[in-house]
Every structure is written in structure tokens, then in C-alpha cells.
């Protein structure tokens, strides 16, 4: 059977103007291509400033892409205008990083969750709206009496559940999660991750899961893309990333993760990456990572490596291979 893709991103580019300098642009997303299979979770990782959030916001069309195409469920949505986007938003919803800033402080939980139903005219009567809101509260593990409260009365984990309920109430087919757990405590993170996984199994929901925590991404995702300075440097199955990481950046990122096992942590020998991430306004020529790469060769400074398949769908952009 041929694989069905829920989301296809082709050569996506997003530049932002720099204020005070007409000629400079921030190269936030630079020629990014990947595909997400129906019912699967694609994890996008990278350091802050690597363009992963911009990538997500462009896909859901909060931003207009500079170039490239975004194909959602077979339909090209890259350059659609305001009203035409309504249909896209019905299919694609987003869960945000900050559960404090992303909920309207002056709306009750009921109204927050009901808003997408009303905006998309999904429910016909007031009664039906309420039924679906209460049904959603049950599913995310909140009680009915929470419906008339305001967001500030809840803890971070509970707020993120409200965010999940709002995104899922209109039954989208793909959900973009932009660091949904990084603002939460460790014991609460697992609650939210389990909730998202449950919806994947029950409804066959597709996710684009963005995070900087590689160990959590590996657990959550089916496939992982590693971003550096606006570009995808490696794409592979989630299990592969620990077993056979190829790109020096991926290896360095893995080496930097603290291991919660003291004996292993003390034995750690692989050195991690030195230096800081360069400016995306004037990214280094050639491979963007060469300034921090311990294996950089002369060709890396001159020629940009292309993403190539190394077999079994494991793609890497590096001159070493």
C-alpha cells in the first residue's frame, strides 16, 4: 500500500526583514522539505533560534512563506488568502508553548474551548456546543465544574490540558505542537505527553511535535528531523537517532544531554559542541555548521551539502558521507 502523507513541506523558505537595514534578512527557514505520514508523529528538534518555531508557524500559515510549498492532505495551502485559510485551520490546529500566555484571561474555560466550535460553525445549537465542550473536558481529564472557571485558577499542567482541549475540540486531522511541554514540571510533562499519545492511537491524529528535549522527542515521535540555522540537517526514524546518528551536529546534541544515570554520566567521553549558534542574518557559507564542527573539511566551508538518503529513509546533509 502506498503511504499517505498528511503534510508535505517542499523547499520552504521564510525570511524576515531586518529593521534599519533594507538589504539584510533573517534567514529563519531555508529550503526545508519533509513529509509526515498520516497518523504518525514527526518530531522537529534543534536549539533555540534554529527556525523550528518559524517553520511551524509558516506551515499553519500564521506567516506567509517566502518561497516553497505546504501541502496539507493533498491540497496546496502555501499562498491561500485569509478566508480560504478557514478550511485549513479546521484541519490543522496548534498547541502553544506557554500555557499562561496562550489562554485568554477574560474567558471562562467553557468559552475558550467553545470558541473554535463557534468560529468554524461546527455545532448547530448552544446545547450541542456545551455537550462537546464537556465531552472534551472529560477526555483531557478535567472535571465539568472547571468549565466556569478562568485560566488563572489552574496550574500549568491543567492549563496545557485546556490548550489541548481547545485544539482538539473541532476534531482536526493534524495538530502542530510548539514545545507543548517545555514550560511544565517533569512530573506534569509525562501527563501531557500521554494525553497526546492517546489521541494518536484513538483518533489516528497526526502531529508535528516541536521540542528541544531530544529524549522526550525520541519517545514521542515516529520520525525526527534535526534543524540547525534554518535547515534540516538530518531526518530519520526515531530509534535511529540514538543508535546511528550521522550528522556531527546530531551527535553533539546527543552528547550534551545530561544522562539521569550517575554512573553513565561520569563515563561520558564524547565531547559536545563548542561555541554559540551563528547569526541567521549572515549564516556562514557552505555547511552552516562548519564553524562549530570538529570534522570540518575545506569543502564544508565552500559548498552547501544537500540532504541525501543514506538508505532506509535516513537522510543527512553532510559532506562526510
Amino acid at each position: 500500500m502506498e503511504k499517505q502523507y498528511m503534510l508535505e513541506v517542499k523547499n520552504l523558505v521564510k525570511h524576515f526583514p531586518v529593521s534599519g537595514n533594507k538589504h539584510a534578512v533573517v534567514h529563519a527557514v531555508e529550503d526545508v522539505s519533509f513529509r509526515v505520514e498520516k497518523g504518525k508523529i514527526f518530531g522537529l528538534v534543534g536549539e533555540s533560534g534554529c527556525g523550528k518555531s518559524t517553520c511551524a508557524r509558516t506551515i499553519i500559515r500564521i506567516y506567509q512563506p517566502t518561497a516553497g510549498n505546504i501541502i496539507v492532505d493533498g491540497e496546496d495551502v502555501s499562498y491561500k488568502k485569509n478566508r480560504e485559510l478557514q478550511a485549513l485551520r479546521r484541519k490543522m490546529q496548534m498547541i502553544f508553548q506557554d500555557p499562561y500566555a496562550s489562554l485568554n484571561a477574560r474567558m471562562t474555560v467553557h468559552d475558550i474551548i467553545a470558541e473554535p466550535l463557534r468560529a468554524h460553525k461546527v455545532a448547530s445549537s448552544r446545547q450541542e456546543v456545551s455537550e462537546r465542550v464537556y465531552d472534551m473536558l472529560d477526555k483531557v481529564g478535567l472535571s465539568h465544574e472547571h468549565a466556569n472557571r478562568y485560566a488563572h485558577e489552574f496550574s500549568g499542567g491543567q492549563r496545557q490540558r485546556i490548550g489541548v482541549a481547545r485544539a482538539l475540540v473541532i476534531e482536526p486531522e493534524i495538530v502542530i505542537c510548539d514545545e507543548p511541554i517545555s514550560a511544565l514540571d517533569v512530573s506534569i510533562q509525562a501527563q501531557v505527553v500521554n494525553l497526546l499519545k492517546d489521541f494518536q492511537y484513538e483518533r489516528g491524529l497526526t502531529y508535528l511535535f516541536i521540542a528541544h528535549d531530544l529524549s522526550m522527542v525520541r519517545y514521542v515521535s515516529d520520525e525526527i528531523g534535526v534543524m540547525y540555522l534554518g535547515q534540516l540537517v538530518e531526518i530519520c526514524a526515531a530509534a535511529e537517532i540514538y543508535e546511528h546518528p550521522l550528522h556531527p551536529y546530531t551527535k553533539g546534541l546527543l552528547a550534551a544531554i545530561p544522562i539521569p544515570v550517575p554512573k553513565l554520566a561520569r563515563q561520558k567521553v564524547v565531547s559536545s559542541i563548542e561555541g554559540d549558534i551563528p547569526s541567521p542574518i549572515s549564516p556562514p557559507p557552505g555547511c552552516h555548521f562548519h564553524t562549530r564542527c570538529p570534522y570540518a573539511k575545506p569543502i564544508c566551508r565552500e559548498q552547501e551539502p544537500e540532504l541525501r538518503d543514506m538508505g532506509g529513509g535516513h537522510q543527512v546533509a553532510c559532506h562526510l558521507y
Binding site: V186, S187, I188, Q189, A190, Q191, V193, N194, K197, S215, M216, R218, Y219, A238, A239, Y242, I259, P260, V261
Partner: peptide
């Protein structure tokens, strides 16, 4: 300790949460 996924975490198993 159980709510942090480790390298050998079984992906089919749910994370243990508090």
C-alpha cells in the same frame, strides 16, 4: 525518575506520570 524517558524507554509503553 520514572517520568523522565530514558534512552532505552519502550515506546509502546506509556510514560509513568505522577
Amino acid at each position: 525518575l520514572a517520568s523522565v524517558p530514558n534512552v532505552a524507554q519502550d515506546k509502546q509503553k506509556r510514560l509513568q506520570s505522577i
